[in-house]
Simulated assay, not measured.
Amino acid sequence: MTNALSLLQQRHSVPARQLGEPAPDDATLHALLEAAIRVPDHGKLVPFRLILLRDEAKLAFGERVTAIGMRNNPAMTGAKLEKERHRYTFAPLVVAVVARIDADSKVPEIEQKLCTGNVAYNILLGAFALGYGAQWLTGWAAYDREVAALLGLAANEHVVGFIHLGTPQVEVPDRDRPGLDDLLSTWTP
């Protein structure tokens, strides 16, 4: 079995709450992100971009997202409010993966989104290969236009996911996976 196949068979997410320092250093992060953007890209549109959230900026982002959430949902109190307030504080680095949809392109929107999703997955896979932990999260903030404005997104852009990166602080067991036999069929005419 090749190392690449073994890597695919072992990759799993590490919950953001269980990620701590260190995050990849700048050189490692640059190499990881350069590799992550090597995705199938019909029409060479590059329908994605990345936004890093770290240190104090990450904390400020979380506070502003919480404020937006409270305005949009005044009933958000207690544990839900605290969850929102701390969502971006656990992992030392968060990468917002952003889809940039070109509505005038011959390339269908779904293919542009899938291309962006591949970037997000490559970050997860690359982080695991490098010995880091990562989790792809969305939540309401990924779909909120006020949060999009906070990130400086254009009207044709939206968050596909927030990738939380860091070093696992505990051993995380793999979850149960579906069996291939339950998912695979062969089409015949």
Rank of each mutant, 00 (worst) to 15 (best):
G78L: 13
K58W: 08
E63K: 15
R177A: 10
D102C: 01
D41G: 01
A141C: 12
L153H: 08
T188R: 15
H158T: 13
L50N: 04
G117C: 09
Q9N: 14
F162V: 05
S185D: 11
D144V: 10
M1T: 12
I101P: 00
M76P: 07
L183N: 07
P189G: 11
W140A: 12
A35S: 13
G43Y: 02
V46Y: 11
L45I: 13
P92H: 06
Q169S: 10
R11G: 06
A120E: 05
L32W: 02
H158Y: 08
A120Q: 05
E82H: 13
A23G: 01
L53Y: 04
H164C: 04
M70H: 12
M70Q: 15
N3P: 04
L150P: 00
V159Q: 03
K58F: 06
F128G: 01
V98Y: 00
P74L: 14
H42M: 05
P168D: 13
H86E: 14
R85V: 03
E34Q: 15
S105W: 04
N122A: 13
V39S: 03
G78K: 09
L19E: 04
V160M: 12
G139Q: 00
Q112W: 11
L59R: 15
V98A: 00
G139I: 01
L114N: 04
P74M: 15
Q112E: 10
A31I: 03
E146A: 15
R49P: 02
L124I: 07
K44Q: 14
G69H: 13
V39M: 02
D144E: 11
D25Y: 04
E34S: 11
S185I: 11
L5V: 12
G152E: 02
E21A: 15
R54I: 06
I123S: 00
I123G: 00
P178Q: 14
L93K: 03
I123F: 02
R100P: 00
A155L: 10
T116M: 12
K113G: 09
L7A: 07
V160G: 04
P22Y: 12
T2N: 14
Q135L: 07
E109L: 09
V119M: 06
P15C: 11
E21L: 13
K113P: 01
R38P: 00
D41H: 01
L183E: 11
L151N: 05
A57T: 13
V107D: 03
V94E: 00
N156I: 08
G179V: 08
D174N: 09
L114H: 05
D41F: 00
G20E: 07
Q18W: 13
E82T: 12
Y88G: 03
A99D: 04
S105L: 07
R64V: 05
A75L: 12
G126Y: 11
P47L: 10
Q9P: 01
P74T: 14
D41T: 01
D176C: 07
R17P: 01
P178I: 08
A149V: 10
S13A: 15
F48W: 15
A149Y: 06
A60D: 15
T116H: 10
M1N: 09
A27I: 10
V160T: 08
L50I: 06
I123D: 00
G139V: 01
